[in-house]
Amino acid sequence: MQSKLKKVFSSKEGVLFVIFVLIFILMSILSPHKFLSNYNIQSLAYQLPEFGILSLSMMLIIMTGGINLSLTFTATLSMIVGGLAMSSSFESTGMAFLSVLIGVVIMLLVSAVLGMFNGLVVSYIGVTPMLATLGASTLFEGISLNITKGGAISGFPFMFLNIGNSAILGIPVPMIIFIVVLVYMWILLEKSRMGAAIVMIGCNPKVAEYSGIRVKKILFQTYIISGILAGIAGIIMASRYNSAKESYGSSYLLQSVAASVLGGTNISGGEGKVLGTLLAAMILQIISSGLNIFGLNRYLTNVLMGFILILVLAINFITDYLKKNK
């Protein structure tokens, strides 16, 4: 029993969990009234899902040995196109439910198509993921700006706002969506054939190909999944902000890489855990919201995020180095 406990706490996820608890306690002690307030806990629960889902999406691509720099623009372009469809159909028909349905379906479809585009360029044409998604991010941003002309899309039916702002049995809807995504991702990576293939492709695509894995097809599908996850995050964001704009969530791009890496995903591919990324996302989330409560300038929060990312990698390097020299 004791050794089992020890094993749990010496695993990467265990360490992350301890860090999370420590920071949580620290924040609570420093600001028991604000940090532990019902309001703050609620807002944490509403904020975490969009970031968490984007982080999982990023982790998935990093596991294949790539990176998705177009992640946040995938989310915003799909919310803009879907949002436009939603608000215009609402305006012309006045039917809220139908418009919301149309909007959400289009958001998901667009995100799938954008993921498909990345997948096509990366897997079938063979462009390195960094460049392909770099180009895609500029492209998606450009298309978004062309649609919004720099403004925001709004005029959504009130019903749409429920997705991001209401709760069922006291559990925020975004959180429910997030839990579904978490379970899906866990099954995908830990239990499914595709997950096993993704891991091996991330380690050594040639061996995978020589073992009869359809590497291109799997990569292609992975980018589609990544795109759809971004789309889901986009839906939550659009609903929470009651509008759609190309710059929403742009700070999540770096943070999602940070959460993946912090969560133990190997930046060169082949390793990654849903639980690790979840815990890392939670850590980053409470840090930023905690600092916000203490009145720290939001720009300084960015500084801290960058610092944490580098610090974690530096610690990884030093512990590896010490282990090797032992």
């Binding site: 091996m200 050594n204 040639k206 061996v207 995978a208 020589y210 082949g270």
Partner: peptide
């Protein structure tokens, strides 16, 4: 080593 096995798995 490069085509048959994923060494780190």
């Amino acid at each position: 080593l490069s085509e048959g096995l994923v060494l780190r798995k």
